[in-house]
């Protein structure tokens, strides 16, 4: 199948098998931040991407579903030299250990903070409910999200 979609703001032509998952396609295209964890079960969240700004699980999303739509991966946020405030908050809070879950965590956080500038801890937990971390115990991750919310609010002050 062949279709167009916007990936991280760039219009891309995608060619794949009709049964390909979005995860498979994105990784073949070089978006390696999107991780394969549980794979095709939708239980771990390592494959989380944003589809038109909403977090979804790419390992259970048929790739053709994104035709004409916009997909965001962590590659769109920032890089080590110019990290996004959410990425910086995760590093500074020590919210990253093995890092495998981190791209999904970052995107779930971005979707949350895009719609809620000052989330409660309960709202943070709900937003991250689909992202499993086997290293950190979540305390530092929640702290990072709180700090990211504060940093983004500060950044937007005139």
């Amino acid at each position: 199948m062949r279709f167009n979609a916007k990936i991280n703001g760039l219009k891309r032509e995608i060619e794949c098998a009709p049964g390909a998952t979005l995860l498979e396609v994105l990784r073949l295209m070089g978006y390696k931040s999107v991780k394969q964890g549980c794979d095709r079960e939708g239980t771990c969240g390592a494959c989380t991407v944003l589809l038109d700004g909403t977090p979804i699980l790419s390992c259970i999303t048929p790739a053709p579903r994104v035709a004409g739509r916009e997909v965001t991966t962590v590659e769109a946020l920032g890089d080590p030299s110019r990290p996004h405030p959410i990425q910086a908050a995760f590093v500074n809070a020590g919210a990253v250990q093995c890092g495998y879950c981190t791209p999904g965590m970052l995107l779930s956080t971005k979707a949350l903070l895009d719609r809620n500038k000052k989330p409660t801890d309960e709202q943070i937990a709900t937003a991250l409910s689909g992202n499993l971390c086997r290293c950190t115990g979540y305390v530092k991750i929640v702290e990072a999200v709180r700090n990211a919310a504060a940093a983004l609010t500060e950044e937007q002050k005139p």
């Binding site: 989380t48 699980l57 259970i60 779930s108 689909g130």
Partner: peptide, 9 residues
């Protein structure tokens, strides 16, 4: 039901 990304789907 389940988790936020699953509820989105």
């Amino acid at each position: 039901v389940a988790s936020e990304p699953l509820r989105n789907m």
